[in-house]
Structure formats: C-alpha cells, structure tokens
Design a protein around this nucleic acid. Structure first.
Length: 609
RNA sequence: GCCGACGUAGCUCAAUCGGCAGAGCAUCCGCCUUGUAAGCGGAACGGUGCGGGUUCAAGUCCCGCCGUCGGCUCCA
C-alpha cells in the first residue's frame, strides 16, 4: 500500500527504528517465533523471516490456516523460549552440510542454491558478496541466516514482543509461486516502547479515512454501485469544491491553462498511445457503437495531445501548460482496492507541459516549486522525494535517446538541488518512457503518501509525432512532461482526512460555524447571526433542534465543526455570540463582527482554528 | 487476481449445542425551555449481503457470487 509506513512520530522512536540493537532483537524474535511454530507444526516449511521497520515477520508453509488462537499460543510459547535463555550461535557451513541440514526444507534449499549461485542473500535479495553459507542456532532451532542477532534470547524483552496478524504472502513475492502464511509481529526494547507503538496503531485506526468519511457524512461507497467507486455527499462535495477552486486559482496564477476533455475515446487513440498494448488489463472493456470501439479513459494524455495537434505549433507558443481535473477509470484488481486511496474511478489533477529542450530546466524547477507551494497550502510541509532513473544496465528497455535521458535527469537533479531538497535516487525505478520525481507527503502521523509525480515522457511525443516549428524553420520534437500534483482528488482527500483526523482547517471545513440557541426564544436571533456570517462568506448552520445546548455542542464536536456559537439571553441582549472552539477552548462572548473578523482571518491564513 | 477473515436495523454491536432476531445511538411523535461533550417518555425500523443446498427447524452448517477487512502481488 502507499502509506509507506515510517515509524511512529517522535524522535525517540525513530532513532530506535534505525537502531542496530533493535534490528537484532526483531530478527532474533522472528527466529524464536519460527521455533515456536515449528514445535507446533513439525511439518512446517520455513521460508524467510526478516526484521522490518516496525517489527518482524516470518513466512511459513503450514498444513492448515492459522487462527488468532494459534497466534496467542505461539506468542505464549515465545515468552517461554525467551526465558529459557539460549545463546545465538553463528556458524559458517559447507555446501554439503547446508544441504543435509535443510534437507526437508525446500524453501531453504532454494535459498541455498541462490546463495551458491551468487547474487542473492538468504532473504533472496540481490547481493554482490561472495557466497557464504551461514547459520544461526539458538537452542534446538537452526536457521539459514547471516544475522545479526542478539547474544541470548533473554535480551529480547518478553513484555515488549507481540504478534499482530497473519496474512498470505507469495514465496519470493512471485504470484506464480506458492502462497505462504506470514505472521507479523513487533518487538521493542522496552514494554513502554511497545505500548507507544500500539497506541500509535490505535491512533492510525482512529484517523482511518474509511471510518471518518462515513462518520462525517463526506463520501460513501456502495456495493450496489460497484467496488472502488466513490459517492461524494454534500459535505464532501463542499470540501472538494474548495480544493478544486483553490487548485484552479493557483493554476491560473501559475501560468497554466485549464482544459476539459471527453471521458471516452476511440480505440485509435489507445492503439496510438500504446495503452492497448501495455495497459489493456487495467482498462474497462470497450463500448462499441456504429462499429467503432470507444474506451473509457484511464488517463488524459492522449486527449491533451490531440489538443496540441489541433494546429501547427511554433516555438513561440511554448511552453504550453495545460491542466485538467480529468476523471479516469482504471480496472484495478479487486484485492488492491482500499478506501479512497486506491479506487477504480478517480479525478486526477493532471497537467501536461509541452516545451522546447531549452526550456525544460526552468519548467521542471517551476513545477517543483509550484507543487510544493500548493502542498504547503494544504498543510503538508514534509516530504520524501524519490528520483527514479533508468537501470543503467538495460538502456535498451527505455524509450528516448541517451542524450534525452541525460538531459532529463540533469534537469530533475538540478531542480532538486537548487531547492536543497534531499531525495533518494532510485535506479531502475523509472518507467520505460522517462525519468520522474515522486513526492510523498508526510502526514501528521509521519506516514508518507505518494501523491505528486513529475514525469518525463519520451514515448508519446514520438508515437503521436508531436512537433513544433523552431526559429530556424525546422520541425522539432517538443518535450512532454506529465504532472499530477495532488495525485487524484480521491486519494488526496483520503490523505487530507487522515492528516487532520477529520478536523479540517477552517478554510476547508464544510461547516465552519454552528450557531446554538439555548432556548426556543433565541432561535430568531441565532438565524439572524447566521445570516450575517453567511453574508460575510462563512459556511454556517443553526442547530435549532429541541435538544439541550450540551447535546448540540456534543453533536458539533463529533462533526468537528471549528466554531460553536452559543447564543442565549445575554448574547441576544448584547448583540454577541459566545464562542466555543473545536479544541475545547472557550474564548467566550464577543461581538458578531469580532467573530467574523477572527474567522475570516483564520480562513485567509489557512489556520487550523 | 491470490491466501485468510468477515458481512445481523442508517450506525455500533448482541443472539449458548442449529430452536420465537435483540440493545444502545440515530430517526419520528410528545413533554421539558435549557449556559459549553448525551434531559425524559413513547413509536417505528431489519428477517440476517445475494442465490442455491442440507435439515422438522438455518443468522448459525455446505456451495457459488457480491462486497469489506488484513496482507501478498500490482500500481502508466
């Protein structure tokens, strides 16, 4: 999933997650778990069991599916094994010994072959090291393993270990290989760290957008309507409109033109673009009418290209920056759907930039600045940036010339370095048609989400024969850059909901203020106040239901409305409102105008409250 | 798509061995006229995701489908 989970917020835990001792503890815990599983299922076949960022796992081939009761039993046995106090002993072994030792462990034998053949380690990952077969023993358990481990099982705190879940996982991550059972666990240095991690997981659950969009009446999904298709309710729609309005305004300022294109296109487009060749299994089946096949668009590029090709382009026209909130449909496999983060129909905030090779550096820098600036508007100020480039070993797999790739990469690197942005260079991660920058935004819980992508395309300009007339009269090929900033409205909205836990900053809140009359006789005044707020441009509701004031406040709190304005006899008399904020603060009575000024300032500055 | 789990009222959840489908909240109707996170009383609401099957009897067991969840794989 894209929420590439980092570590719990706060420096202490982050240090721990990178701490070598912690990795040893986790890796050792996974061995202890494997021992416990093997005792319970002597016929179990072991696969691999590494430490991961938040714990560890081990993959097993077992005679039957594991139940939660099994997990509890295994966990209990782990504590006993830990208490038995075995040393972890490292030993290098010969090929023959290894084959003999793991004779009845086919997955281990496969790993052994891999290690001997060179190129992979005992987790199946590529390595350049010379082949060494090594094992780690603790008590009766032995595993093919390079380590490192703690010295003794007692170094694992039995109260800081917990098994979390069991899930399916393909052997070697290959869907054609057997499906194994993976047990996930977590281990920390102290029980306090474990508790903090579990509390963090609970917080993640509390903020889950799938729960919040339902509770806050923002978006729903319907079995009857089809999986992965979102229905935006009035309040969700309101937020989306605010996001879109802001997006449009910023794009106009930023030198973009906004275009609109159809939702379906003739098969010719998709043959020409290559989608039917490379992407067909992700496209909805064609609609045939009058003998012509139309496909629902999985992306907007070919449409923008047709606009480009609608007339002869001059170097004087470039750069062209065209943006569209383009709704696309992709047939995602059923198992990958996930709330708003992975859907089948979504609206990309797409843009394509067509420019001359000379302009590309400036354009890339412009896109980068523009993207980060807009993300900042929405409260995202921390990023994790990846630069995906070619695999230098296989240049033939990529479209475009060497010079193009080099220039493109240079422009991406230059932009990142001009802004002092740290990034990770990912060799071989580029798509075949060009290098790209992906920006993952970090949310309030420190999780990173893939939203922004800036991609070169050396493929489509060729396929569609895009040209411009240069100042020397020659026809030349423009550069084409795809860019999605928020990614998609759906995914961005889901991330936004989780980032704020549903308590949106005032400028985004679907209802900014609710006026709460204490008794019926205050209702007219409440409506009067509401009219004034509305006239000032605020989104306001009046709760004049026959409930107690306390109940109305509770409802407003649950709805996470930023401002609650209580009005009773005193306020009515003085022409005031009595403010209570979502965070529980009660600034108290103030004039209506004073409240309006305060609220408008919060909106203008995009403050939380 | 694959492995596993799950699907009961709008929401959250209950229903012992297969034996009369239930509660709170929300909704509706009354009463109360209230000072910063739930006033009181009453009514109505589902036949258990859908379709088959087993059984005297199915929410409970079996099969298929749909959907959701945890993962894997995928993510132009």
């Amino acid at each position: 999933m894209f929420p590439c989970i980092l570590f719990p917020k706060g420096g202490k835990m982050s240090e721990h997650a990178q701490n070598d001792h912690l990795l040893r503890i986790r890796h050792s815990a996974s061995h202890v778990m494997a021992q416990a599983v093997l005792e319970k299922f002597p016929e179990a076949k072991l696969a691999i069991g590494p430490a991961i960022e938040t714990g560890f796992y081990y993959d097993f081939d077992l005679p039957r599916p594991l139940t939660p009761e099994d997990l509890a039993e295994i966990e209990a046995r782990m504590r006993e094994i830990i208490a038995e106090g075995y040393d972890f002993v490292y030993q290098e072994i010969s090929e023959e010994e290894a084959r003999r030792l793991f004779a009845d462990q086919p997955y281990k034998l496969e790993l052994i072959e891999g290690i001997l053949a060179g190129g992979v380690d005992e987790d199946g990952n590529p390595t350049a090291e010379r082949p060494v077969l090594s094992i780690y023993r603790h008590g009766p358990f032995v595993d093919l393993c390079r380590g490192p481990h703690v010295a003794n099982t007692r170094e694992i705190n039995p109260d800081a270990v917990k098994l979390l879940s069991v899930a399916g996982a393909y052997w070697r991550g290959d869907e054609r290989r057997p499906m194994l059972q993976r047990i996930y666990g977590t281990a920390w240095e102290t029980p306090e760290d474990l508790q903090a991690y579990l509390a963090w997981r609970e917080e993640v659950e509390r903020r889950d957008h799938r729960r919040l969009i339902k509770e806050l009446d923002l978006i729903s999904f319907h079995e009857e309507g089809g999986a992965g298709l979102a229905y935006w309710h009035p309040k969700g729609g309101r937020i989306r409109q605010i996001i879109e309005d802001h997006w449009r305004a910023r794009h106009r300022e930023g030198g973009y033109e906004i275009v609109y294109t159809p939702h379906i296109g003739r098969s010719w487009l998709w043959e020409q673009s290559g989608h039917l060749q490379f992407y067909k299994e992700n496209m909805y089946a064609p609609i045939e009418i009058e003998g012509v096949q139309y496909y629902l668009k999985p992306m907007n590029c070919p449409f923008h290209i047709l606009i480009y090709k609608s007339r002869t382009r001059s170097y004087r026209d470039l750069p062209l920056r065209w943006a569209e909130l383009g709704t696309v449909y992709r047939f995602e496999r059923s198992g990958v759907l996930h709330g708003l983060l992975r859907v089948r129909g979504f609206t990309q905030d797409d843009a394509h930039i067509f420019c001359t090779p000379e302009q590309i550096e400036d354009e890339i820098l412009g896109v980068l600045d523009f993207s980060l600036s807009i993300l900042r508007d929405f409260g995202f100020t921390e990023y994790q940036i990846e630069l995906s480039v070619r695999d230098p070993r296989t240049p033939e797999k990529y479209a475009g010339s060497n010079e193009m790739w080099e220039q493109a990469e240079r422009s991406l690197v230059n932009a990142l370095e001009a802004r002092n942005l740290p990034y990770k260079r990912m060799e071989g991660e580029a798509v075949f048609y060009g290098p790209k920058i992906d920006i993952k935004i970090k949310d309030a819980l420190g999780r990173a989400w893939q939203c922004t992508t800036i991609q070169f395309d050396f493929n489509l300009p060729e396929r569609f024969d895009l040209t411009f007339r240069d100042r020397d009269g020659q026809e030349r090929r423009p550069y084409m850059v795809h860019r999605a900033l928020l990614g998609s409205m759906e995914r961005f909205f889901g991330v936004l909901v989780e980032h704020y836990g549903g308590a949106f900053p005032v400028w985004l809140a679907p209802v900014q203020a609710v006026v709460i009359p204490i008794a019926d006789r205050h209702a007219d005044y409440a409506w009067d106040v509401a009219r004034r707020l509305k006239a000032a441009g605020l989104r306001v509701e009046v709760n004049d239901s026959p409930e107690r004031m306390q109940a109305k406040i509770r409802d407003a709190q649950i709805e996470k409305i930023p401002y609650m304005l209580v009005v009773g006899d005193r306020e009515m008399q003085n022409g005031e409102v009595n403010l209570r904020r979502r965070d529980g603060e009660v600034p108290g009575a103030m004039s209506v105008d004073a409240f309006i000024a305060m609220a408008l300032e919060a909106v203008r500055e995009r403050r939380l409250l």
